[in-house]
Nucleic acid binder design. Structure first.
Length: 457
RNA sequence: GGCCGGUUGGCAGAAUGGCUUAUGCAGAGGACUGCAAAUCCUUUUAUAUCGGUUCAAUUCCGGUACCGGCCUCCA
């Protein structure tokens, strides 16, 4: 069986992945808060875990992997959106959820086994808080329930920070209802016009971290294999999830492997609305193929910061043009089932080395382009597609890759026909004029042994 | 201030204690083509800096500089 290595934040190094139960490999990845359209960073993380999910399915079998990615649909950001727009909360969350699912589909992200919503697990969260109070890890103060960090001697071990440092940071919210400034909210009261649920502590709503503890426990158990998310979540979100879960269920360890993806930057700086370099997935995909964005995400190792540039996106598109050219030339060859090559698997098993894996896809494409016999083509095409599947690439139809839905084929075909006439008469001036006119419209003509074909580049 | 990560050719981006250090884009030359495009062949260019360990370091260790992230909501 393939040995998978993953960078484990708990150990701050690469770690051999040994599932708790290889018949039931379990992964939980923090999903979006549904208050606004997904931005590029929101898309990069699920693409990365999609590759990991594909790898786990390959190694352990699809039926032996459970992948959970949550939807946060109760949060103050949603509340703020409601205040700003006047739109009902339900509408905001549902609409944003739908956009997110559309984006994920375009990026060829496989559906997780579960996409639980926080609001569907309120009872579980209340139970969790009760347990924490019972176990002496939480206390009520001025209508809120807080986690008592002093009750957990090793609090801070995931993010590798000590209480001293956190207080020295002096940016921790100091509030008189907290015993320790680092204590965080488990449950807080809601106004009558705010979303809330009845609880032993009155009408209120959960703190941010609670849902992941409750949902992962319910869907995956108290101990599971992989917990993922962006590296910005390590503290405080994941640290606090870990604290809640371990303290609520003594003797359990929560996630065994913590995997974090590097942040996305735009032209070398952090993406932020105030800097004006903020891009939603939606607006990028309006003008660029989703597959190019997906490929671009995979050109950098997931653990590194990822620098988004439009040059990079164009380069990704050109690479796909090359890949689809090879497939287009072999469109008549029937698709054969094949296993992914060992080197692709090895690259991915080594802490998801997608850049190295991509270099093997290039090798596959080069080999296919050089293939001479139909048998060779058949084998190499199958190999390419099987390898690309592991990265979730080459899922488009090769001929539609080079066309646009609004292209008027008959008009272009007529021009091609006209040019063929000119060529027959050796009227090169007319022939070239037609070629150049089309080129200006982004259409490239290719003269081959079987006639002329056109592509949109 | 604390904690983390990074610095590889014109650009993107892997890998590695020694051997010809990937892969892609761009550039150069060639084949093919009426000309192109696509494809194929050939090819130029790199390991921030200073020390240490070592027979040997881009790779290991330490210092310095610079960049980024987190410490507050964030994928």
């Amino acid at each position: 069986m393939t040995q998978i290595y993953l960078h484990n934040t708990l150990k701050q190094r690469k770690d051999l992945f040994v599932p708790i139960d290889e018949k039931n490999v379990r992964m939980y990845v923090c999903g979006p808060t549904v208050y606004d359209k997904a931005h590029l960073g929101n898309a990069k993380t699920p693409v990365v875990y999609d590759v990991l999910y594909r790898l786990l399915c390959y190694v352990y079998g699809k039926d032996h992997v459970t992948y959970v990615s949550n939807i946060t649909d109760v949060d103050d950001k949603i509340l703020n959106k409601h205040k700003q727009t006047g739109k009902p909360i339900q509408e905001i969350t549902q609409e944003t959820y739908n956009w997110y699912i559309e984006d994920m589909a375009k990026l060829n992200v496989l559906s997780p086994n579960y996409r639980p919503r926080a609001t569907e697990y309120i009872q579980e969260m209340i139970e969790l808080v009760k347990k924490l109070i019972e176990n002496g890890h939480a206390y009520e103060s001025q209508g809120q329930v807080l986690f008592d960090v002093d009750s957990m001697p090793n609090y801070g071990y995931l993010s590798n920070r000590s209480m001293k440092e956190m207080i020295a940071g002096a940016r921790v919210e100091v509030a008189d209802y907290k015993k320790n400034p680092a204590d965080f909210i488990l449950w807080k009261p809601s106004e009558a016009d705010q979303p809330g649920w009845d609880s032993p502590w009155g009408y209120g709503r959960p703190g941010w971290h609670l849902e992941c503890s409750a949902m992962s426990s319910k869907l995956l158990g108290n101990d599971f294999d992989i917990h993922g998310g962006g590296s910005d979540l390590i503290f405080p979100h994941h640290e606090n999830e870990l604290a809640q879960s371990c303290c609520a269920y003594p003797g359990t360890h929560f996630a065994k492997y913590w995997v974090h993806t590097g942040m996305l930057m735009i032209n070398g700086v952090k993406m932020s609305k105030s800097l004006g370099n903020f891009y939603t997935v939606d607006e990028i995909l309006a003008k660029n193929p989703a597959e190019a964005l997906r490929l671009l995400f995979l050109t950098t190792h997931y653990h590194q910061p990822f620098n988004f540039t439009f040059e990079g996106l164009n380069e990704a598109k050109k690479i796909l043009d090359k890949f689809y050219n090879a497939l287009l030339k072999n469109e008549d060859i029937p698709v054969q089932k094949a296993e992914p090559s060992q080197k692709i698997i090895e690259a991915l098993a080594d802490d998801l080395n997608t850049p190295l894996a991509l270099s093997y896809i290039h090798e596959d494409v080069n080999a296919l382009n050089k293939a001479e016999t139909p048998e060779e083509r058949k084998t190499l095409k199958a190999q390419l597609l099987a390898d690309a599947y592991m990265l979730g690439l080459l899922y488009n139809n090769p001929s539609s890759w080079f066309k646009r839905t609004d292209d008027d084929s008959s008009e272009i075909d007529a021009l091609v026909q006209k040019r063929l006439e000119a060529k027959k008469n050796k009227d090169w001036a007319t022939a070239d004029a037609i070629r150049n006119d089309l080129k200006e419209k982004g259409i490239v003509l290719e003269d081959g042994p079987d006639g002329t074909t056109w592509k949109r580049i």
